[in-house]
Design a protein around this nucleic acid. Structure first.
Lengths: 193, 193
DNA sequence: ATTAGACCTTAAACTAGATTAAGTTTTTTT
DNA sequence: AAAAAAACTTAATCTAGTTTAAGGTCTAAT
Protein backbone atom coordinates (compact mmCIF):
# COMPACT_ATOMS: atom_id res chain seq x y z
CA UNK A 1 0.00 0.00 0.00
CA UNK A 2 1.39 3.38 -1.06
CA UNK A 3 0.29 5.20 2.06
CA UNK A 4 1.93 2.72 4.48
CA UNK A 5 4.39 5.38 5.76
CA UNK A 6 1.49 7.70 6.62
CA UNK A 7 -0.39 4.89 8.38
CA UNK A 8 2.71 4.13 10.47
CA UNK A 9 2.90 7.77 11.47
CA UNK A 10 -0.81 7.91 12.38
CA UNK A 11 -0.43 4.87 14.67
CA UNK A 12 1.20 7.31 17.10
CA UNK A 13 -2.06 9.28 17.15
CA UNK A 14 -5.24 7.31 16.29
CA UNK A 15 -4.73 4.16 14.18
CA UNK A 16 -6.70 3.58 10.99
CA UNK A 17 -8.76 0.45 10.18
CA UNK A 18 -8.62 -1.19 6.72
CA UNK A 19 -11.66 0.64 5.41
CA UNK A 20 -10.29 4.04 6.39
CA UNK A 21 -6.90 3.16 4.93
CA UNK A 22 -8.54 2.20 1.63
CA UNK A 23 -10.43 5.52 1.49
CA UNK A 24 -7.20 7.38 2.03
CA UNK A 25 -5.18 5.27 -0.43
CA UNK A 26 -7.49 6.48 -3.22
CA UNK A 27 -6.80 10.13 -2.50
CA UNK A 28 -3.05 10.07 -2.06
CA UNK A 29 -0.51 10.34 -4.88
CA UNK A 30 3.15 9.32 -4.67
CA UNK A 31 5.72 11.51 -6.36
CA UNK A 32 9.48 11.51 -6.86
CA UNK A 33 11.26 14.84 -6.61
CA UNK A 34 14.81 15.50 -7.80
CA UNK A 35 17.40 17.41 -5.80
CA UNK A 36 16.90 21.21 -6.25
CA UNK A 37 13.45 20.69 -7.79
CA UNK A 38 10.69 22.86 -6.27
CA UNK A 39 7.16 21.69 -5.46
CA UNK A 40 5.97 25.22 -4.65
CA UNK A 41 7.01 28.61 -5.97
CA UNK A 42 6.09 32.20 -5.19
CA UNK A 43 2.87 33.22 -6.95
CA UNK A 44 1.47 29.68 -7.10
CA UNK A 45 -1.46 28.58 -4.98
CA UNK A 46 -0.30 25.73 -2.74
CA UNK A 47 -2.48 22.79 -3.84
CA UNK A 48 -1.07 19.98 -1.70
CA UNK A 49 -0.36 18.81 1.79
CA UNK A 50 2.85 16.77 1.36
CA UNK A 51 4.26 13.95 3.50
CA UNK A 52 7.99 13.22 3.18
CA UNK A 53 8.66 9.48 2.76
CA UNK A 54 12.33 9.83 1.83
CA UNK A 55 14.64 12.82 1.46
CA UNK A 56 14.58 16.36 2.75
CA UNK A 57 12.96 19.72 1.89
CA UNK A 58 13.26 23.34 2.83
CA UNK A 59 10.61 26.04 2.75
CA UNK A 60 11.97 29.54 2.16
CA UNK A 61 11.14 33.07 1.16
CA UNK A 62 13.13 35.46 -1.04
CA UNK A 63 13.39 39.09 0.12
CA UNK A 64 13.62 42.32 -1.96
CA UNK A 65 17.40 41.98 -2.08
CA UNK A 66 17.14 38.46 -3.50
CA UNK A 67 18.32 36.76 -0.31
CA UNK A 68 16.72 33.43 0.66
CA UNK A 69 15.50 32.83 4.22
CA UNK A 70 14.75 29.28 5.39
CA UNK A 71 11.54 29.07 7.38
CA UNK A 72 11.31 25.32 7.84
CA UNK A 73 12.96 22.00 7.01
CA UNK A 74 11.05 18.72 6.56
CA UNK A 75 12.66 15.27 6.44
CA UNK A 76 11.29 11.72 6.69
CA UNK A 77 7.81 11.40 8.30
CA UNK A 78 7.22 15.12 8.42
CA UNK A 79 4.50 17.14 6.69
CA UNK A 80 5.14 20.26 4.64
CA UNK A 81 2.83 22.80 3.00
CA UNK A 82 2.21 26.54 2.88
CA UNK A 83 -0.76 26.27 5.16
CA UNK A 84 -1.89 29.87 4.59
CA UNK A 85 -1.98 29.51 0.82
CA UNK A 86 -3.40 25.98 1.00
CA UNK A 87 -6.46 26.76 3.14
CA UNK A 88 -7.28 30.22 1.82
CA UNK A 89 -6.51 29.66 -1.87
CA UNK A 90 -4.25 32.70 -2.04
CA UNK A 91 -0.96 32.95 -3.97
CA UNK A 92 1.99 31.79 -1.90
CA UNK A 93 5.00 33.97 -1.11
CA UNK A 94 7.11 30.90 -0.42
CA UNK A 95 9.15 28.21 -2.13
CA UNK A 96 9.44 24.53 -1.21
CA UNK A 97 12.54 22.82 -2.62
CA UNK A 98 14.07 19.34 -2.32
CA UNK A 99 17.55 19.41 -0.77
CA UNK A 100 18.04 15.71 -1.64
CA UNK A 101 16.44 13.32 -4.14
CA UNK A 102 13.10 12.68 -2.42
CA UNK A 103 9.84 10.74 -2.40
CA UNK A 104 6.65 12.34 -1.13
CA UNK A 105 2.95 11.52 -0.72
CA UNK A 106 0.58 14.31 -1.67
CA UNK A 107 -3.06 15.04 -0.85
CA UNK A 108 -5.03 17.70 -2.70
CA UNK A 109 -7.24 20.13 -0.86
CA UNK A 110 -10.60 18.76 -2.06
CA UNK A 111 -9.47 15.21 -1.32
CA UNK A 112 -8.41 16.23 2.17
CA UNK A 113 -11.81 17.86 2.75
CA UNK A 114 -13.51 14.67 1.53
CA UNK A 115 -11.38 12.65 3.95
CA UNK A 116 -12.13 15.05 6.85
CA UNK A 117 -15.81 14.22 6.35
CA UNK A 118 -15.52 10.47 5.73
CA UNK A 119 -12.89 9.90 8.46
CA UNK A 120 -13.76 12.38 11.23
CA UNK A 121 -10.79 11.43 13.40
CA UNK A 122 -8.51 12.75 10.64
CA UNK A 123 -9.51 16.27 11.69
CA UNK A 124 -8.30 15.43 15.18
CA UNK A 125 -5.03 14.02 13.81
CA UNK A 126 -4.26 17.08 11.69
CA UNK A 127 -5.20 19.32 14.60
CA UNK A 128 -2.64 17.56 16.80
CA UNK A 129 0.01 17.72 14.05
CA UNK A 130 -0.39 21.47 13.68
CA UNK A 131 -0.48 22.00 17.45
CA UNK A 132 2.88 20.28 17.80
CA UNK A 133 4.33 22.39 15.01
CA UNK A 134 2.87 25.47 16.67
CA UNK A 135 4.70 24.71 19.92
CA UNK A 136 7.99 24.18 18.04
CA UNK A 137 7.53 27.47 16.22
CA UNK A 138 6.73 29.29 19.44
CA UNK A 139 9.96 28.01 20.97
CA UNK A 140 11.82 29.20 17.91
CA UNK A 141 10.34 32.70 18.22
CA UNK A 142 11.35 32.74 21.88
CA UNK A 143 14.90 31.75 20.93
CA UNK A 144 15.04 34.39 18.22
CA UNK A 145 14.06 37.22 20.56
CA UNK A 146 16.11 36.07 23.56
CA UNK A 147 19.27 34.17 22.52
CA UNK A 148 22.56 34.81 20.74
CA UNK A 149 23.35 33.15 17.43
CA UNK A 150 25.67 30.69 19.18
CA UNK A 151 22.96 29.56 21.60
CA UNK A 152 20.48 29.21 18.73
CA UNK A 153 22.97 27.14 16.74
CA UNK A 154 23.64 24.85 19.70
CA UNK A 155 19.97 24.21 20.34
CA UNK A 156 19.32 23.63 16.64
CA UNK A 157 22.04 20.96 16.60
CA UNK A 158 20.63 19.44 19.78
CA UNK A 159 17.00 19.43 18.67
CA UNK A 160 17.57 18.43 15.04
CA UNK A 161 20.79 16.42 15.22
CA UNK A 162 19.57 14.24 12.32
CA UNK A 163 19.23 17.35 10.12
CA UNK A 164 22.30 19.18 11.39
CA UNK A 165 24.85 16.72 9.96
CA UNK A 166 22.91 16.31 6.75
CA UNK A 167 22.43 19.92 5.70
CA UNK A 168 25.03 22.26 4.17
CA UNK A 169 25.90 24.92 6.70
CA UNK A 170 24.68 27.63 4.32
CA UNK A 171 21.17 26.25 4.81
CA UNK A 172 21.51 26.14 8.58
CA UNK A 173 22.79 29.74 8.65
CA UNK A 174 19.78 30.84 6.60
CA UNK A 175 17.47 29.07 9.06
CA UNK A 176 19.15 30.68 12.09
CA UNK A 177 18.98 34.14 10.51
CA UNK A 178 22.75 34.72 10.30
CA UNK A 179 25.33 34.86 7.47
CA UNK A 180 27.29 31.71 6.52
CA UNK A 181 30.48 33.63 7.40
CA UNK A 182 29.33 34.19 10.94
CA UNK A 183 28.23 30.57 11.36
CA UNK A 184 31.70 29.53 10.26
CA UNK A 185 33.15 31.77 12.99
CA UNK A 186 30.81 30.27 15.60
CA UNK A 187 31.79 26.73 14.63
CA UNK A 188 35.48 27.54 14.84
CA UNK A 189 34.98 29.05 18.27
CA UNK A 190 33.06 26.00 19.50
CA UNK A 191 35.57 23.48 18.14
CA UNK A 192 38.53 25.27 19.70
CA UNK A 193 37.02 24.82 23.16
CA UNK B 1 -25.70 33.92 28.27
CA UNK B 2 -22.16 34.07 29.58
CA UNK B 3 -20.58 32.59 26.48
CA UNK B 4 -22.21 35.04 24.07
CA UNK B 5 -18.82 36.57 23.08
CA UNK B 6 -17.51 33.12 22.13
CA UNK B 7 -20.64 32.34 20.11
CA UNK B 8 -20.21 35.62 18.20
CA UNK B 9 -16.64 34.67 17.41
CA UNK B 10 -17.65 31.15 16.27
CA UNK B 11 -20.20 32.62 13.85
CA UNK B 12 -17.23 33.48 11.65
CA UNK B 13 -16.41 29.77 11.48
CA UNK B 14 -19.34 27.37 12.03
CA UNK B 15 -22.30 28.77 14.00
CA UNK B 16 -23.72 26.93 17.03
CA UNK B 17 -27.39 25.97 17.53
CA UNK B 18 -29.13 26.48 20.91
CA UNK B 19 -28.48 22.95 22.10
CA UNK B 20 -24.76 23.18 21.39
CA UNK B 21 -24.60 26.59 23.03
CA UNK B 22 -26.26 25.21 26.18
CA UNK B 23 -23.76 22.35 26.36
CA UNK B 24 -20.93 24.80 26.13
CA UNK B 25 -22.43 27.29 28.60
CA UNK B 26 -22.24 24.56 31.29
CA UNK B 27 -18.53 24.06 30.79
CA UNK B 28 -17.34 27.65 30.61
CA UNK B 29 -16.48 29.82 33.61
CA UNK B 30 -16.25 33.60 33.59
CA UNK B 31 -13.48 35.25 35.57
CA UNK B 32 -12.30 38.78 36.31
CA UNK B 33 -8.56 39.39 36.33
CA UNK B 34 -6.88 42.46 37.80
CA UNK B 35 -4.11 44.37 36.08
CA UNK B 36 -0.71 42.63 36.67
CA UNK B 37 -2.42 39.50 37.97
CA UNK B 38 -1.15 36.27 36.37
CA UNK B 39 -3.33 33.37 35.29
CA UNK B 40 -0.33 31.13 34.57
CA UNK B 41 3.12 30.95 36.13
CA UNK B 42 6.28 28.94 35.47
CA UNK B 43 6.09 25.49 37.04
CA UNK B 44 2.27 25.32 36.93
CA UNK B 45 0.45 23.01 34.56
CA UNK B 46 -1.71 25.13 32.27
CA UNK B 47 -5.26 23.99 33.07
CA UNK B 48 -7.32 26.33 30.90
CA UNK B 49 -7.95 27.54 27.40
CA UNK B 50 -8.88 31.21 27.94
CA UNK B 51 -10.94 33.56 25.76
CA UNK B 52 -10.47 37.31 26.29
CA UNK B 53 -13.81 39.14 26.56
CA UNK B 54 -12.37 42.45 27.76
CA UNK B 55 -8.83 43.64 28.40
CA UNK B 56 -5.42 42.46 27.31
CA UNK B 57 -2.84 39.82 28.24
CA UNK B 58 0.75 38.99 27.49
CA UNK B 59 2.46 35.59 27.54
CA UNK B 60 6.16 35.72 28.40
CA UNK B 61 9.16 33.75 29.54
CA UNK B 62 11.89 34.76 32.01
CA UNK B 63 15.49 33.88 31.04
CA UNK B 64 18.46 32.95 33.30
CA UNK B 65 19.33 36.64 33.66
CA UNK B 66 15.84 37.45 34.87
CA UNK B 67 14.84 39.26 31.67
CA UNK B 68 11.25 38.88 30.43
CA UNK B 69 10.53 38.09 26.76
CA UNK B 70 7.03 38.59 25.37
CA UNK B 71 5.95 35.71 23.15
CA UNK B 72 2.36 36.76 22.48
CA UNK B 73 -0.30 39.33 23.25
CA UNK B 74 -4.03 38.58 23.40
CA UNK B 75 -6.78 41.19 23.44
CA UNK B 76 -10.57 41.08 22.91
CA UNK B 77 -11.88 37.97 21.08
CA UNK B 78 -8.54 36.21 21.10
CA UNK B 79 -7.64 32.90 22.76
CA UNK B 80 -4.62 32.39 25.00
CA UNK B 81 -3.09 29.31 26.61
CA UNK B 82 0.26 27.52 26.87
CA UNK B 83 -0.79 24.90 24.40
CA UNK B 84 2.23 22.62 25.07
CA UNK B 85 1.57 22.47 28.79
CA UNK B 86 -2.22 22.29 28.35
CA UNK B 87 -2.30 19.24 26.05
CA UNK B 88 0.63 17.28 27.49
CA UNK B 89 0.07 18.02 31.20
CA UNK B 90 3.65 19.17 31.65
CA UNK B 91 4.80 22.12 33.81
CA UNK B 92 4.81 25.37 31.89
CA UNK B 93 7.88 27.54 31.43
CA UNK B 94 5.70 30.56 30.72
CA UNK B 95 3.70 33.29 32.43
CA UNK B 96 0.39 34.79 31.33
CA UNK B 97 -0.34 38.19 32.86
CA UNK B 98 -3.12 40.78 32.48
CA UNK B 99 -1.83 44.12 31.18
CA UNK B 100 -5.22 45.74 31.86
CA UNK B 101 -8.17 44.90 34.12
CA UNK B 102 -9.73 42.04 32.17
CA UNK B 103 -12.61 39.59 31.85
CA UNK B 104 -12.03 36.11 30.45
CA UNK B 105 -13.96 32.90 29.75
CA UNK B 106 -12.15 29.71 30.68
CA UNK B 107 -12.56 26.07 29.66
CA UNK B 108 -10.81 23.27 31.51
CA UNK B 109 -9.10 20.47 29.64
CA UNK B 110 -11.56 17.69 30.54
CA UNK B 111 -14.49 19.95 29.70
CA UNK B 112 -12.93 20.79 26.35
CA UNK B 113 -12.44 17.08 25.62
CA UNK B 114 -16.09 16.45 26.56
CA UNK B 115 -17.15 19.23 24.20
CA UNK B 116 -14.91 17.90 21.37
CA UNK B 117 -16.92 14.65 21.59
CA UNK B 118 -20.39 16.11 22.04
CA UNK B 119 -19.90 18.91 19.48
CA UNK B 120 -17.64 17.42 16.76
CA UNK B 121 -17.43 20.64 14.76
CA UNK B 122 -15.67 22.22 17.74
CA UNK B 123 -12.57 20.20 16.81
CA UNK B 124 -12.75 21.78 13.37
CA UNK B 125 -13.12 25.26 14.86
CA UNK B 126 -10.15 24.90 17.19
CA UNK B 127 -8.12 23.41 14.34
CA UNK B 128 -8.80 26.51 12.23
CA UNK B 129 -8.00 28.83 15.15
CA UNK B 130 -4.61 27.22 15.70
CA UNK B 131 -3.88 27.14 11.96
CA UNK B 132 -4.39 30.89 11.76
CA UNK B 133 -2.14 31.44 14.74
CA UNK B 134 0.43 29.15 13.12
CA UNK B 135 0.52 31.29 9.98
CA UNK B 136 0.94 34.47 12.08
CA UNK B 137 3.78 32.88 14.01
CA UNK B 138 5.47 31.70 10.82
CA UNK B 139 5.39 35.24 9.47
CA UNK B 140 6.90 36.47 12.70
CA UNK B 141 9.74 33.94 12.45
CA UNK B 142 10.36 35.08 8.89
CA UNK B 143 10.51 38.71 10.03
CA UNK B 144 12.86 37.83 12.87
CA UNK B 145 15.36 36.11 10.61
CA UNK B 146 15.15 38.56 7.72
CA UNK B 147 14.32 42.11 8.87
CA UNK B 148 15.85 44.92 10.91
CA UNK B 149 14.30 46.03 14.18
CA UNK B 150 12.86 49.10 12.47
CA UNK B 151 11.10 47.04 9.81
CA UNK B 152 9.75 44.66 12.48
CA UNK B 153 8.46 47.60 14.52
CA UNK B 154 6.74 49.12 11.51
CA UNK B 155 4.99 45.88 10.57
CA UNK B 156 3.97 45.29 14.19
CA UNK B 157 2.32 48.71 14.27
CA UNK B 158 0.65 48.04 10.93
CA UNK B 159 -0.61 44.55 11.79
CA UNK B 160 -1.62 45.23 15.40
CA UNK B 161 -2.46 48.95 15.32
CA UNK B 162 -5.12 48.37 17.99
CA UNK B 163 -2.47 46.94 20.34
CA UNK B 164 0.35 49.30 19.37
CA UNK B 165 -1.26 52.42 20.83
CA UNK B 166 -2.52 50.58 23.90
CA UNK B 167 0.66 48.90 25.09
CA UNK B 168 3.59 50.51 26.90
CA UNK B 169 6.56 50.62 24.57
CA UNK B 170 8.57 48.47 26.99
CA UNK B 171 6.17 45.62 26.23
CA UNK B 172 6.45 46.16 22.49
CA UNK B 173 10.27 46.20 22.69
CA UNK B 174 10.21 42.90 24.58
CA UNK B 175 7.97 41.40 21.88
CA UNK B 176 10.25 42.61 19.08
CA UNK B 177 13.34 41.27 20.82
CA UNK B 178 15.07 44.64 21.32
CA UNK B 179 15.82 46.89 24.30
CA UNK B 180 13.40 49.73 25.23
CA UNK B 181 16.30 52.16 24.67
CA UNK B 182 16.73 51.03 21.09
CA UNK B 183 12.99 51.20 20.41
CA UNK B 184 13.05 54.77 21.66
CA UNK B 185 15.84 55.51 19.17
CA UNK B 186 13.84 53.92 16.34
CA UNK B 187 10.76 55.97 17.20
CA UNK B 188 12.74 59.20 17.29
CA UNK B 189 14.26 58.40 13.91
CA UNK B 190 10.85 57.63 12.40
CA UNK B 191 9.17 60.77 13.77
CA UNK B 192 11.94 63.06 12.52
CA UNK B 193 11.32 61.92 8.96
C1' DA C 1 39.14 14.10 -16.90
C1' DT C 2 37.89 18.82 -16.65
C1' DT C 3 35.44 22.69 -15.74
C1' DA C 4 31.86 25.16 -13.50
C1' DG C 5 29.35 25.90 -9.66
C1' DA C 6 28.36 25.30 -5.12
C1' DC C 7 30.34 25.30 -0.43
C1' DC C 8 33.45 26.61 3.38
C1' DT C 9 36.85 29.52 5.71
C1' DT C 10 39.55 33.64 7.21
C1' DA C 11 40.14 38.24 8.07
C1' DA C 12 39.58 43.39 8.05
C1' DA C 13 36.34 47.16 8.18
C1' DC C 14 31.83 48.36 9.37
C1' DT C 15 26.98 48.82 11.56
C1' DA C 16 22.81 47.46 14.06
C1' DG C 17 21.66 46.93 18.37
C1' DA C 18 23.18 46.22 23.60
C1' DT C 19 24.79 48.17 27.80
C1' DT C 20 25.40 51.51 31.23
C1' DA C 21 24.12 55.49 33.34
C1' DA C 22 21.67 59.62 34.33
C1' DG C 23 17.67 62.58 34.07
C1' DT C 24 12.44 63.35 33.03
C1' DT C 25 7.79 62.23 32.81
C1' DT C 26 3.88 59.56 33.73
C1' DT C 27 1.19 56.36 36.32
C1' DT C 28 -0.04 53.91 40.42
C1' DT C 29 -0.46 53.32 45.17
C1' DT C 30 -1.08 54.85 49.76
C1' DA D 1 -1.92 65.04 47.69
C1' DA D 2 2.44 62.86 48.27
C1' DA D 3 5.47 59.28 47.54
C1' DA D 4 6.85 55.39 45.06
C1' DA D 5 7.21 52.89 41.15
C1' DA D 6 7.09 52.25 36.47
C1' DA D 7 7.87 54.17 31.82
C1' DC D 8 10.37 57.02 28.40
C1' DT D 9 14.45 59.46 26.54
C1' DT D 10 19.29 60.72 25.42
C1' DA D 11 23.86 59.85 24.85
C1' DA D 12 28.44 57.56 25.21
C1' DT D 13 30.68 53.27 24.89
C1' DC D 14 30.82 48.57 23.57
C1' DT D 15 29.88 44.06 21.02
C1' DA D 16 27.45 40.64 18.21
C1' DG D 17 26.81 40.01 13.77
C1' DT D 18 27.30 41.99 8.62
C1' DT D 19 29.78 43.17 4.57
C1' DT D 20 33.26 42.76 1.35
C1' DA D 21 36.81 40.34 -0.55
C1' DA D 22 39.87 36.66 -1.42
C1' DG D 23 41.43 31.92 -1.58
C1' DG D 24 40.54 26.93 -1.03
C1' DT D 25 37.79 22.63 -1.23
C1' DC D 26 34.42 19.70 -2.67
C1' DT D 27 30.76 18.03 -5.88
C1' DA D 28 28.43 17.46 -10.10
C1' DA D 29 27.86 17.70 -14.71
C1' DT D 30 29.65 17.69 -19.51
Amino acid sequence: MTIQPILEEFKKHLPFNDEEAALMENRVVQRKVKRRQTILQEGMICKHYSFVVKGCFRMYSIDEKGIEHNIQFAAENDWITDIGSFYSDTPSKLYIEALEPSVILQIEKLDLYFLYISIPKLVRIFKVIIEKKFVELQNRVLQNISSTAQQRYLSFVEQYSNLAHRLPSTQIASYLGITPEFLSKIRKELSSR
